[in-house]
Amino acid sequence: MSITVKGVIARSKGAPVELVDIVIPEPGAGEVIVDIETCGVCHTDVHYRDGGINDEFPFLLGHEAAGRVSVVGAGVTHVAVGDFVVLNWRAVCGDCRACKRAEPWYCFNTFNAAQKMTLTDGTELSPALGIGAFAEKTLVHEKQCTRVDPAADPAVVGLLGCGIMAGIGAAMNTGNVTRGDSVAVIGCGGVGNAAIVGARLAGASVIVAIDRDQKKLATARTLGATHTIDSAGLDEDGVVSAVQGLTGGFGADVVIDAVGRPETWRQAFYARDLAGTVVLVGVPTPEMMLEIPLLDVFGRGGALKSSWYGDCLPERDFPMLTDLYLQGRLPLDEFVSERIGIGHIEEAFAKMARGDVLRSVVVL
């Protein structure tokens, strides 16, 4: 039997989001319904609303979510009714070429629920990142659910479902930051500050936070940055020189671009030490183009990497990071700027654009 609940959709490009009735079908084979307890407001949701991902409107927004499994479909073995889960958008298939070479965090065949949630008139919805969690309930594939310790605050650990994991993983998984490394992070929103936390966890000795917003830089210092650079008024060379000045004149071992623009990527490229690593975790838009001398790419050596979801393996990383949070070793609470109702998402988008929050979290 289908269920009708409230959910937040983007009906057309750039239009304000709407709180409407949505219909969730009875779970099919391998599918489950999750009662959403919390869902973070992420920049990706704005990209969906503004048509920056694709044009498959209407979208059911929301994806950084935690909740409890309430209904399971046929053959479900991965989770059970009552399990407390964080939703993930990489459901590892176990059978693609990445999985077969023991790199499941690159799974090329990740999947979602087969059935579609709809509006009451039957219009099919496209769930953001295959999740759609600005809703009282959502339908996902069982492998999009990762069980974590139910003692954790859902508003906090739900953020592992996207931005926080992306940032921590960019440092620890993609960047392979190790003890004693120097790390620079460009852009100190939710993802960038999570990268700072990841670098600190990994034992980096120098962590440089770069942003033009003093509030974000102040937060970065509380989360583990040893130095900050106010990039307002600095050109590309100025940012690079500032990073070099804090790293013995050489540049950082790992530079993480959490903005995802050509100019910030070039800053990252030139602000790293010879044979250093650049990690791109900020998401560019389709029209962005990069021009850089190929000889510089060859001559500087090292690694130029893109970080997909922090190259995480949800079944490994979500429980581990939840445990660190519960032990007081991972300051995830600092990322929850405010808790809001489901009717205040447009306001949360505006606050995020102004840099007033790291994360607004919808509590259902």
Results as ranks from 00 to 15, higher is better:
131 I>S: 02
103 E>K: 15
142 E>K: 03
125 L>Q: 06
143 K>A: 09
91 A>V: 10
76 V>M: 03
137 K>T: 11
107 C>V: 01
136 E>H: 00
93 C>I: 01
115 Q>F: 06
74 A>W: 08
148 V>A: 07
120 T>V: 15
108 F>W: 13
133 A>Y: 06
74 A>F: 09
91 A>C: 07
115 Q>W: 06
136 E>R: 04
124 E>A: 11
150 P>R: 02
132 G>L: 06
114 A>Y: 13
127 P>I: 12
151 A>P: 08
143 K>L: 11
145 C>T: 10
104 P>R: 02
123 T>G: 05
85 V>Q: 02
116 K>A: 14
103 E>W: 05
137 K>W: 03
83 D>A: 03
144 Q>M: 08
147 R>I: 15
122 G>E: 04
98 A>C: 04
97 R>M: 11
144 Q>N: 09
142 E>R: 07
138 T>D: 12
97 R>H: 14
107 C>K: 01
129 L>V: 11
143 K>R: 14
104 P>A: 08
116 K>I: 14
121 D>M: 10
105 W>T: 11
142 E>N: 10
141 H>M: 07
76 V>N: 00
106 Y>T: 05
134 F>L: 05
79 V>E: 07
78 H>T: 08
136 E>G: 04
90 R>E: 03
148 V>D: 02
120 T>Y: 06
119 L>I: 02
98 A>Q: 03
151 A>V: 08
110 T>K: 08
140 V>H: 08
96 C>G: 01
122 G>Y: 00
82 G>L: 05
142 E>M: 12
75 G>I: 15
142 E>Y: 07
86 V>S: 06
135 A>Q: 08
139 L>F: 09
147 R>D: 10
151 A>Y: 09
135 A>H: 03
68 R>K: 04
88 N>K: 09
79 V>N: 07
98 A>N: 01
70 S>C: 09
147 R>V: 15
77 T>K: 08
90 R>W: 09
109 N>Q: 08
79 V>A: 04
95 D>T: 03
125 L>N: 02
127 P>S: 04
68 R>E: 00
127 P>E: 08
74 A>I: 13
134 F>C: 12
94 G>F: 05
140 V>S: 00
139 L>A: 08
145 C>K: 00
105 W>F: 15
149 D>R: 01
104 P>V: 08
67 G>E: 12
84 F>P: 04
90 R>P: 12
126 S>A: 11
104 P>C: 05
122 G>P: 02
89 W>G: 09
142 E>C: 09
113 A>G: 09
120 T>W: 10
79 V>T: 04
111 F>A: 15
120 T>H: 11
99 C>R: 02
150 P>K: 04
118 T>V: 11
106 Y>E: 12
134 F>Q: 01
85 V>A: 07
106 Y>A: 06
91 A>H: 01
113 A>I: 14
133 A>L: 13
120 T>A: 12
137 K>P: 13
